[in-house]
């Protein structure tokens, strides 16, 4: 086994498990930032340099901020944050369900004869070819994503500010 891969896998899984089990929401969010960084390291390890930096920029730089903002805007005091304890049944059934899904996936992955080519050099996709792909064959998709981003931003603004004036009238 590749040692780097093992380390990255450990970082990803450990931070995800810790984030899922923390009681403090801020800790969860910050651990998830670690998780996202781990995923970025994985991309780097796999040779997808550009995606790794994009992942770091978008997840660590933007989405983490949004998450923390959401936590702070909906906070009570720090001590009141984790009061939303789930019932034992829910947790147990969720863990069982998750374990079952993992079992199925693991068996499927291990049983399938996957045609691999480990000799392929890492980082085989250059920035230039990536750009040409995006602007050439994938141009329509880029446009659609652009529209999606704009619409979601506008939608978010509308959603978040919908109460601004009619607040007193709302029950």
């Amino acid at each position: 086994m590749n040692l780097t891969f093992a380390l990255i896998a450990f970082l990803i899984l450990a931070s995800a498990v810790l984030a899922a089990t923390r009681r403090d929401l801020i800790h969860s969010a910050l651990l998830l930032v670690g998780n996202w960084l781990g995923v970025a390291f994985f991309y780097l390890w796999a040779g997808a340099e550009f995606v790794a930096f994009a992942q770091a920029l978008v997840y660590v730089g933007a989405i983490s901020m949004v998450v923390l903002f959401a936590v702070l805007l909906t906070r009570r005091m720090r001590t009141e944050l984790p009061l939303l304890v789930a019932t034992r049944d829910r947790v147990v059934s969720a863990v069982l369900g998750g374990a079952a899904v993992f079992g199925v996936l693991a068996v499927a992955v291990l049983r399938t004869p996957l045609d691999t080519n480990p000799a392929k050099p890492a980082g085989s996709v250059s920035m230039l070819s990536l750009g040409q792909q995006l602007m050439g064959p994938q141009a329509a998709a880029v446009l659609i994503v652009g529209v999606l981003l704009t619409v979601s931003l506008l939608g978010a603004v509308v959603l978040a500010s919908s109460d601004a004036d009619g607040k007193e009238g709302a029950p």
């Binding site: 995606v51 959401a70 994938q138 979601s152 939608g155 509308v158």
Partner: peptide, 22 residues
Amino acid sequence: VIFVLFSIAVAAAEAAVWLALV
């Protein structure tokens, strides 16, 4: 790689929407 790039972009859009929802 391109698929992941799009996925990251969509995740960014999604994050904005769910912040508003929350």
